[in-house]
């Protein structure tokens, strides 16, 4: 067993994760993008995206994921998502004299709702991931003492 010394779970779990994590991520993105015409949407899709990252973290250990997305970046991405949502809400009424959150763009289907979904997906996925990260990292600190 080559991977016995490496952090994370056994070879079987790692191999399966390598296959499935990408699929879960793509499925999450799919759910985000079809939220306006079917079941799903930003929140559900965002949760699935975050779960794919959590899945990677469980199988390969936390350093593999933290190299790509750490806490600071997660906070920045989630607040960017929130800001983008607010800006989308404001654009409607600053430029076109309509009420807050009113859609004024004729997107190919369902107006602004797909864009809202994407923004919420970004916010929820990064937010959920940093929540998980906070829980994991805090217990790590306590164990060291």
């Amino acid at each position: 067993m080559k991977n016995k010394e490496a952090p994370g779970m056994s070879l079987i779990v790692k191999s399966v994760t390598r296959l499935t994590a990408g699929l879960i991520l793509i499925y999450g993105i799919y759910i985000v993008f079809r939220g306006h015409i079917g079941p799903g949407g930003g929140f559900a899709g965002g949760v699935i995206i975050a779960l794919s990252l959590v899945h990677l973290m469980l199988a390969f250990g936390k350093d593999v994921v933290l190299k790509r997305l750490d806490e600071a970046r997660g906070i920045i991405i989630s607040s960017l998502g929130a800001l983008a949502f607010l800006i989308l809400g404001i654009v409607g009424f600053l430029g076109f004299k309509a009420p807050f959150l009113k859609e004024r763009f004729e997107h190919f289907s369902a107006g602004l709702i797909p864009i809202y979904d994407v923004v919420i997906g970004v916010l929820v996925s990064s937010g959920l991931f940093i929540t998980f990260l906070a829980l994991v990292l805090l217990t790590g600190k306590r164990e060291k003492k």
Partner: peptide, 10 residues
């Protein structure tokens, strides 16, 4: 305040 809260983070 909401807008500022997230802007402060950035």
């Amino acid at each position: 305040p909401l807008f500022t809260a997230f802007l402060i983070v950035l």
